[in-house]
Design a protein around this nucleic acid. Structure first.
Length: 922
RNA sequence: GCCGGGGUGGCGGAAUUGGUAGACGCAGUGGAUUCAAAAUCCACCGCUAGUGAUAGUGUGGGGGUUCGAGUCCCCCCCUCGGCACCA
């Protein structure tokens, strides 16, 4: 490396973050310091791709971004010094609703608003000193990017992975738009307040359910770098359930005399073993049989209609009381031939399975509640064998019942004839699939769950009335949005040819960027220049699709576009290229847990779809996933006359404390009292957010970074503390002062000579290298809060050596401290590294070698061992570090503490833990 | 209800995975410096008793394993998150 004269001015005696950070950032940009190149020979350990979830450009960065990106930044800076070819890109999730809302409010085009926000946030990323390779920056509203959304969508359409169907949606008649479930509040549009209608609208779907089994299997077995928490969330969402789908035959006819659903009412059950306990069937209010019952009996129709009441979301359904109405219609039990009455129930969902269930009140909680309410018969068909273990002995003394004990009075056994069905016992064991056996079930009697299900399924198959079936909670992904600010769906509607895909050569279908939505629906609908086109098939005038894609499409694959931002194969532009094979799969993905389901699942699905299209060779995109914890802050408010709360930013509040030292409220500058609302997620609604820009302006980026890393583990939630930020600043100032006070001796000092060190200096050096060892361990496991505390410990140890006492220790100490602190606080450390002359001899800090502890420094002449007597710590003994087990035992036995606490008894046993402790048992 | 995290001083958190609990920091107390304040530096800082040396006690609660448990096992409580009339 060629020597260049120091670019920093002579060393300042006080720490001035503003100039330090500006100097460093200017230098990094000028030298293209973070540009990543595939197969870079400077980095022998191979590639490491670490990426943060791309942000929505809402205006400016918030503290969550700072935390997310600093974790990412520390990781890549550390790994680069380890010899890895690291990649940390950044981009913008630039399509979406907030831009349309901002447009309505500010009368500015979403495009203009979005690009302005990106400019601001990009400069904030640089102000934070993030090691981003901006040459790979992407913006999802850029036609060069979304062209490939369209291209791949057409490929999926071709292969059938994407398809068109008619969907029922929430329609806001005032805003002329479709609303997501979470945008419907009490049946009204969140913005317009209009009553939301159900509309059937054609749209495009992606067949993610085709991949459900593979997604689930990989979730459970192929993602060891994901947390249990995350895996469980995905597993629940996919929601696999295995059971039997079968039909109850009937001869109910519709108004035209045609048999409804060919005379078969299908149901799905995971408990086919309880089929002999069916005492009714229940259908959803929208089920054809319910509809027919309403037609046949006009008195019934309004009652059935009423059962539809309430919201459509699952959460709303959950709080509804179970209600129903008998139809007077009957179906035939497929195995017994008995007639079973059809009820319409509000707890049966038309959208799940076949919209009908078999009612087995003895062995299903919901059926039980329903049967009790309407006095329907309850027939027990599963019992625990005598002596079987009772799952929960609520009536007992709390001790588990012994397995196999025939005297166990808590075990429900076969009920004697005529005895009333026991509801408490049922509560305890109705769901116990593992141990129950069939009773009162004819030929199935005595069979255990799995065998019984098999036997029932076989009989149903023989009658051609059923089959085993696996269902998933996961639904196909509807990607059509009746929105302006998104990727245009590249299809054309022709009166003669129907729906015609846009030919590949005509991509991208460019979204006009000048529209300003006014709340009256998608402006594309009135954009004749956009809509009018020629049919690619027949050439006649045709209309362009005005729906756009869900923005989750944009984020489903952007991380691969970073890898090959201008991808081309054989000179032709392509979605990805061989550079994607180099960087992917991603080694570490970092983002909020709020994307645990949708984004991560769609990205995994999209990867598999690309794989099946031959575009890549791996199955899973993200090897490791870190979900950084939320940032929390105290909440303060003043109650208003209306009973609402006026939230007060915590910065305006002078806290007051109760006698235990906990915050219990506060006062404002005018002396008025505010109430304490506890701790909550930083956000606009409670006005308890902290603006990173304020922090950077006041303390600098290094302090902001150090603080967010020190406050807790990367995945833990963290509560904001102003005074702790001051502490972070204080530490950096001490680092600066330490270096400034010793700059002369450090610049000229030589290597440490162990033989010339006195005991104190040896102890300092031991502390330095021992702490380095801990720091390296914590870097490896990405526990960055203790990495920061290790740096603090190093400084504490080094400061005990006053200036001039040992230049060689000061030099070694500074060189280690600056390198271990660099990933957290890159600006100050780069400046000091240069000022102290390290850059001259070892090159820029960015590429310096990561420090390793010196084994010689860790050798001690004497060891302090903890002395325990009967397992209680009673003192310590000092032995030569060369002492063997026998010598240590002898030293321990001779200790006065053993005599004192052992009360003179002779040691029975002495346990020696090398280097740690010795325990004398008397 | 099921599943997955978690519970350690006044506070944030550590404990290299069974070996001195409370590292590091914040807050607090006392002192130095200062005309004064800020900043900085030094000392103390789990709880109880004691002037003190010290003793006892202590990681949500109760049992257990072990020479030794914040850490492992069993039961319970609390809390955060996910799923949920999913048949």
């Amino acid at each position: 490396m060629r020597y260049e004269p120091p670019r920093f001015p002579a060393m300042d005696s006080t720490y001035n973050p503003k100039t330090v950070e500006a100097t460093a950032q200017t230098h990094w940009i000028a030298t293209d310091a973070y540009k990543a190149v595939e197969h870079d020979p400077r980095f022998p350990k191979g590639k490491y791709y670490a990426c943060s979830m791309l942000p929505y450009p809402s205006g400016k960065l918030h503290m969550g971004h700072v935390r997310n990106y600093t974790i990412n930044d520390m990781l890549v800076r550390y790994l680069r010094m380890q010899g890895y070819n690291v990649l940390m890109p950044m981009g913008w999730d630039a399509f979406g609703l907030p831009a349309e809302n901002a447009a309505m409010k500010g009368k500015v085009a979403p495009a203009a608003w979005t690009y302005e926000n990106i400019r601001t946030m990009k400069s904030q990323c640089n102000a934070l000193g993030l090691a981003i390779d901006w040459s790979r920056e992407l913006t999802t509203c850029d036609p060069a990017y979304y062209k490939w959304n369209q291209w791949f969508f057409l490929k999926m359409l071709e292969s059938g992975v994407a398809y068109r169907k008619t969907q029922i949606v929430n329609w806001d008649p005032v805003d002329q738009t479709v609303l997501a479930n979470e945008q419907v509040i009490d049946g009204r549009g969140w913005r317009s307040g209009a009553l939301v209608e159900k509309r059937e609208i054609p749209g495009y779907y992606m067949n993610i359910t085709k991949y459900a089994e593979e997604l689930l299997d990989a979730t459970l077995h192929k993602l060891p770098g994901w947390s249990d928490r995350l895996r469980t969330i995905q597993e629940n969402w996919i929601g696999k359930s295995e059971g039997v789908r079968f039909a109850f035959p009937h001869d109910i006819k519709d108004a035209n005399g045609k048999s409804i659903q060919d005379g078969k009412m299908y149901v799905f059950t995971t408990r086919a073993d309880t089929i002999m306990g069916v005492t009714f069937v229940a259908v959803a209010p929208e089920h054809p049989l319910a509809v027919r019952a309403g037609e046949m009996n006009p008195l019934l129709a309004p009652k059935i209609e009423a059962l539809k009441a309430g919201g459509t979301t699952e959460a709303e359904l959950a709080v509804k009381e179970k209600e129903g109405v008998a139809t007077g219609l009957f179906v035939t039990h497929p195995l017994t031939g008995e007639q079973v009455e059809i009820w319409v129930g509000n707890y049966v969902l038309i959208t799940y399975g076949d919209g009908a269930v078999m009612g087995v009140p003895a062995h299903d909680e919901r059926d039980f509640a329903f049967a009790k309410k309407y006095n329907l018969p309850i027939k027990q068909v599963v019992a625990l064998p005598p002596g079987g273990r009772v799952p929960k002995a609520g009536e007992g003394d709390g001790a588990p019942s012994p397995v196999g004990s025939s005297t166990n009075s808590l075990s429900p056994t076969l009920p004697p004839g005529g005895r009333e069905f026991s509801t408490h016992a049922w509560q305890d064991w109705y769901g116990n699939k593992g141990e129950g056996i069939a009773i009162s079930s004819g030929s199935y009697d005595g069979l255990k769950f799995a065998d019984c299900v098999d036997a029932v399924a076989n009989d149903l198959i023989a009658k051609k009335l059923g089959e085993k079936k696996t269902t998933f909670r996961l639904r196909d992904w509807g990607i059509s949005r009746q929105r302006y600010w998104g990727t245009p769906i590249p299809v054309i509607h022709c009166d003669d040819c129907g729906v015609v895909p846009v030919p590949e050569k005509d991509l991208p279908v460019v979204l006009p960027e000048h529209h300003i939505p006014d709340g009256s629906g998608n402006p594309l609908k009135h954009d004749e220049a956009f809509i009018n086109c020629a049919c690619p098939k027949c050439g006649k005038p045709a209309r362009r699709e005005t729906d756009t894609m869900d923005t989750f499409v944009d984020s489903a694959w952007y991380y691969m576009r970073y890898a090959s931002p201008d991808a081309a194969i054989n000179g032709m532009p392509s979605m990805v290229d061989s550079r994607n094979d180099y960087w992917m799969p991603m080694d570490q993905y970092i983002g909020g847990i709020e994307h645990a389901v949708l984004h991560l699942l769609y990205a995994r699905f999209w990867t598999k779809a690309m794989r099946d299209m031959g575009l890549l060779k791996f199955d899973e995109p993200f090897k490791r996933m870190t979900n950084h914890g939320m940032l929390l802050n105290h909440i303060f408010y003043k109650p208003t006359d209306k009973g609402t709360k006026d939230y007060i930013p915590p910065t305006d509040v002078h806290n007051t404390f109760d006698e235990k030292g906990h915050i219990n409220g506060g006062t404002l500058a005018d002396g008025s009292r505010v109430e304490y609302g506890g701790i909550g997620k930083m956000g606009k609604s409670e006005r308890n957010g902290v603006d990173p820009q304020d922090l950077i302006d006041k303390y600098g980026a290094d302090t902001a970074r150090l603080y967010v890393m020190f406050v807790g583990g990367p995945e833990d939630p963290a509560v904001w503390s102003d005074t702790a930020v001051e502490g972070a600043m204080r530490f950096l100032r001490r680092v600066w002062t330490y270096c400034a006070d010793r700059s002369g001796e450090i610049a000229s000092a030589g290597a440490v000579d162990m033989n010339s060190l006195n005991a104190d200096l040896k102890a300092t050096r031991f502390e330095l290298h021992n702490t380095l060892k801990q720091s390296n361990f914590d870097y490896e496991r990405q526990q960055y809060n203790t990495v920061v505390s290790a740096s603090m410990k190093m400084l504490n140890a080094l400061e005990t050596v006053k200036p001039g006492v040992s230049p060689s220790i000061s030099r070694e100490g500074a060189s280690i401290l600056l390198r271990t602190l660099y990933p957290v606080a890159p600006h100050i450390t780069c400046q000091l590294w240069a000022d102290l002359g390290f850059e001259k001899t070892e090159g820029e800090l960015l590429n310096a070698k990561w420090p390793q502890p010196d084994a010689a420094a860790l050798v001690q002449d004497e060891l302090k061992l903890v002395l325990q007597v009967n397992g209680k710590t009673r003192g310590e003994i000092v032995v030569p570090s060369s002492a063997d087990k026998a010598a240590i035992e002898a030293a321990a036995a001779a200790s006065p503490d053993v005599a004192k606490y052992g009360e003179g008894r002779t040691p029975k046993k002495i346990i020696v833990v090398p280097g740690r402790l010795v325990n004398v048992v008397v």
